[in-house]
C-alpha cells in the first residue's frame, strides 16, 4: 500500500517531466532507491507494473531500480559504516550519536524516451 502511494507520486512527477520535454512515449524509467528508504523494490515494481497499465505516456513503461547503499556516519569517532548491518550503533566505538549519510533516497534518475 505504501509503495503504491510512492508509485503514484513518481508517475505524477514523470508525467510533468514528459510535458516539459514534449515527450509522447516513455519506454523505461530508472529509479534510485535507498536501502533504508522504506520502499521495498519488489513491491514497488509490482505496483509500478499495475499502475502504468492505466497510463498514457507511461503505458507499460519498464521500471529499472538501482540500489543506493545506506551509510551512517558516527559523530563520536568519525567512522562511516554500513547501516543495514549495524543500524544506529557505531560498530567501531559503540556510540549512538550517529546520522544517516545516504540510503533514504527515492530519486527518478532518468527516463528513456521513444521517438
Amino acid at each position: 500500500m505504501h509503495e503504491l502511494g510512492v508509485v503514484f507520486h513518481c508517475i505524477k512527477e514523470i508525467n510533468q517531466i514528459a510535458l516539459e520535454n514534449k515527450v509522447k512515449k516513455i519506454a523505461s524509467v530508472t529509479i534510485e532507491l535507498g536501502e533504508v528508504s522504506t520502499v521495498i523494490p519488489d513491491l514497488f515494481e509490482d505496483c509500478w507494473n499495475w499502475a502504468v497499465k492505466k497510463e498514457d505516456i507511461l503505458h507499460n513503461a519498464k521500471i529499472v531500480i538501482e540500489k543506493i547503499k545506506a551509510i551512517t556516519h558516527c559523530e563520536q569517532c568519525g567512522e562511516n559504516y554500513d547501516t543495514v548491518i549495524n543500524g544506529k550503533t557505531c560498530p567501531k566505538c559503540g556510540s549512538l550519536n550517529t546520522y544517516l549519510l545516504t540510503g533514504n533516497e527515492i530519486i527518478i534518475k532518468q527516463i528513456e524516451v521513444k521517438e
Binding site: H9, I17, V23, I106, Q110, V113, E115
Partner: peptide, 12 residues
C-alpha cells in the same frame, strides 16, 4: 523507434 535518454535526477 529511436530511444533517447533524459537525465532527471529529481526526488520523487
Amino acid at each position: 523507434d529511436n530511444l533517447r535518454i533524459i537525465e532527471v535526477k529529481r526526488s520523487v
